Amino acid sequence: TEVDLHLGDITIKLKDVSEEIVKRAKELFKNGWSAEFVKKWIEEAVK
C-alpha cells in the first residue's frame, strides 16, 4: 500500500509502511520534529 504523509508543506510518499509507523511519524512531526527528521526516522523504522 502507498500512503502520502503530509508534513507541513512537505509530502512524503510511503510504500509498505504500517499504520503504526504513519501514526508515530505524525506524532513526531506534531511534537516539533522537522519533516526531514521524520523522513529519516521512517526510513530507519522500515529497515
Rank of each mutant, 00 (worst) to 15 (best):
E20Y: 13
W41M: 03
W41A: 01
W33M: 12
V38Y: 01
L14M: 05
K26C: 10
K26L: 15
L28N: 01
V46T: 10
E43H: 08
K30H: 11
I42Y: 02
D4Q: 14
T11F: 07
I12C: 05
E27M: 14
V38T: 03
E19M: 11
D9S: 10
V3T: 10
L5H: 02
K47A: 14
L5K: 02
E27G: 03
T11G: 05
I21S: 01
W41G: 00
A25F: 03
L14G: 03
E43F: 14
K30Y: 10
V17I: 08
G32N: 03
E27A: 10
W41V: 01
E43T: 09
H6Y: 06
E2F: 14
K13V: 12
L28D: 00
D4R: 07
K13S: 11
D16W: 12
L28E: 01
I42V: 09
E27P: 00
V22K: 04
F29V: 04
A35T: 06
K26Y: 15
E36T: 07
T1D: 13
S34H: 05
S34W: 04
D4I: 15
T1C: 10
A25G: 03
K47H: 11
L7Q: 01
A35N: 03
K15C: 08
F37N: 11
F29M: 05
K47L: 13
G32F: 03
I21D: 02
E36R: 04
E36H: 07
E19S: 07
R24S: 06
A45L: 09
V3M: 13
G32R: 02
R24T: 09
D4A: 13
V46L: 15
E20D: 13
V22C: 04
E2V: 12
E19D: 14
K26V: 15
G32A: 02
T11S: 09
S34D: 08
D4S: 12
E43L: 12
E44S: 07
I42H: 00
E19G: 08
F37Q: 14
G8N: 05
E2N: 11
K13P: 09
A45Y: 11
A35R: 04
D16C: 11
D16Q: 07
L14A: 03
I12P: 01
K13Q: 09
L7R: 02
I10Y: 11
K15S: 10
I12V: 08
T11K: 05
I12A: 03
R24Y: 15
I42G: 00
S34T: 11
